[in-house]
Design a binder for these strands. Structure first.
Lengths: 347, 347
DNA sequence: ACTCTGGTGTTAAACGGTTAACCTGATTAT
DNA sequence: ATAATCAGGTTAACCGTTTAACACCAGAGT
């Protein structure tokens, strides 16, 4: 019984007679044999390890993505090495280099903080790669596009159906791509629903959300507030409380992200969810397609967001002053003030 | 220039003349050479990968531990493969098997959900391993012991200094080891401070904390409530709110875990923190000591918990009825009622 | 002069698989 | 009868390092 035969039994790389295979299996069991992974990868030039690069493993968004990815990988016999870039393009490249040195079979890069050079590097080494939101896939490369606007449109329509006509959007720093996408999605959805929008930029923190909501309330008198992430939405909940506005009776609040804690706020938070589990599974599936398929040109994958309705949104309080004791007689058609921007121009 | 020389330059495994080394370096740079990891591990019998096994990567506790571990590993040129067992001992063994097949240099198992067989397996294969809370380290094995009681004692003493003499402890399911440890730590700290304790068992959820707190309030009339985790403490905050008790003026609340959200509750939560970052770093350090040291016998490491004081604890409202409208005239020396247990026996 | 010794560098044998090429004996086609 | 084909199995080269053993040269000791 030669090592070659054993190899063929293990990999089905050549037909082997039933009884021979059985003998091999038995020997393997008796000796507790386990193939040496290093030798395998050295000989075959490809390890059974794939890399997963994420922005920040401590951001609650990613562990779930990671887990789904890892489980999908495990089903295909692949192990996963996860690396976190802390949103730093330089570290992204470093991670990719290290993964390449490990002869990984492929890499999924689920962060946008990345220079072109990182993609070039992988392309040059011929390493299959999956990216997130970088346009089209190319040779040995696939792309996953997240449709942020779909969930946001649902949220806006949901609020519209509840009778809301003035909605403030608390946006994030405009220099972050994904935040800009969310803002624009909100504006076009608002335009489509003939809703009067206002945008306030803030900093993605709870405190920032609190501040922005207070500002929106006094200047714009919205019946609903939507935030570009859940933390700011939570800040908005606190702001409403401090303005003696009940949520959702006096003010509706919606968030984005569906973080774990959005189920635990009081009231629980209506929010737009990115299907994290699906993202992880899809990322691996895309990678696996690249690895097993012969078609050099990678496909494009799409992932859609959806609204999760909870308690923080309800029917609009129409034509009624907010029940603020000191009810300064601001009229509802108060135009957007400096510092807020209304831009319903996009389709 | 032979490959051997290159190897020696790269690993400092034998002295090499300055100029030769320089020539090698230059060639490496010019050719963009990167050592083949698989070949290295095959030849040396040991890869530069270590395994990290955790209970649940989606539990916010672990990403931080993971990151610290991974960064410490990176400083030593080691990559990390993280695996999650979902609290299942069978999966734990499976993870360990897979890591062994990858010829990892060592493994840190930071979950207690594990049978003895898993440890035996690693020992048999001679793989260095670090465990959490499993008693003593052994050959090629180290142990990290977490001192839960230290932080809990601090919390109890903190409350005592604020004048609290009746404290309810909302415990978790007694079948979980770490929860039992916390409860016992509370009871002995209470005894040491001559505090009258009451224990209510609950289920670690926000709702469970809400329920347990309400129950404790009506039966035991504590001036402070401590929960075995932060989620239950948050439930307790809600319960206090619904009982028209202000926190901390009328009731102090403390938690355990220092989850990210404990900074964002209203009021912010006083809680006992396990130094997650330190745990990760220590776990790798322990592993590295095992790997580089010659001493076969692994050391024991200890990690201590500490109190984080925030807004939810304050001076006790002494000799005064809780400002409950329906202030049923319960006396403060009301004995513990059925369903709560007082056990100040331990030292 | 002649071995000894140290510092440098090279040679070649592992490491444990994969896989192309080859061998063998039986079956089928001519 | 002879050749061609085929299934099943073995041989041996190769993957890119590490590392023990060896070769070489200079200066030191005798």
């Amino acid at each position: 019984m030669s090592t070659a035969t054993v190899s063929h039994v293990l990999n089905h790389s050549k037909p082997v007679r039933r009884d021979t295979a059985a003998r091999v299996e038995r020997a393997i069991r008796e000796l507790g044999y386990q193939a040496n992974t290093s030798a395998k990868s050295l000989a075959s030039g490809r390890s059974a390890i794939v890399g997963l690069v994420v922005s920040d493993i401590e951001n609650p968004f990613f562990p779930e993505v990671t887990r789904a990815f890892q489980e999908a990988a495990h089903l295909r016999g692949q192990e996963t090495i996860v690396m976190s870039t802390h949103y730093d393009p330089v570290r992204t490249l470093d991670c990719i280099r290290r993964l390449a040195a490990l002869q990984v079979a492929g890499v999924a890069v689920l962060t946008s903080e990345m220079h072109q050079s990182a993609m070039d590097y992988l392309a040059r080494k011929g390493i299959r790669a999956v990216y997130l939101d970088v346009g089209k896939g190319g040779p040995h490369t696939a792309n996953i596009a997240v449709d942020y606007s779909s969930g946001i449109r649902q949220a806006v329509e949901h609020l519209r159906q509840l009778g809301h006509e003035r909605i403030a959007f608390i946006s994030g720093p405009p220099e972050l791509v994904s935040l800009r996408i969310r803002r624009d999605a909100f504006l076009s959805a608002a335009a489509a629903c003939s809703i009067q929008p206002a945008v306030i930029e803030s900093d993605l923190t709870i405190h920032g959300g609190y501040w922005a909501c207070g500002r929106a309330l006094s200047r714009f008198h919205p019946t609903a507030v939507m935030a570009a992430n859940d933390l700011m939405a939570i800040g908005a909940l606190h702001a409403a409380y401090d303005h003696h506005l009940r949520v959702p009776e006096d003010l509706s609040v919606a968030g984005f992200d569906n973080i774990l804690f959005s189920e635990y706020t009081q009231p629980t938070l209506t929010t737009v969810a990115i299907p994290r589990r699906d993202l992880g599974e899809m990322a691996f599936q895309a990678l696996w397609d690249l690895l097993s398929g012969e078609h050099v040109e990678g496909r494009n994958y799409c992932l859609t967001t959806r609204l999760v309705v909870r308690e923080s949104t309800g029917p609009a309080l129409h034509r009624t002053e907010p029940r603020r004791p000191s009810g300064a007689s601001a009229t509802r058609d108060d135009p957007a003030t400096p510092g807020t921007k209304a831009d319903p121009s996009e389709p």
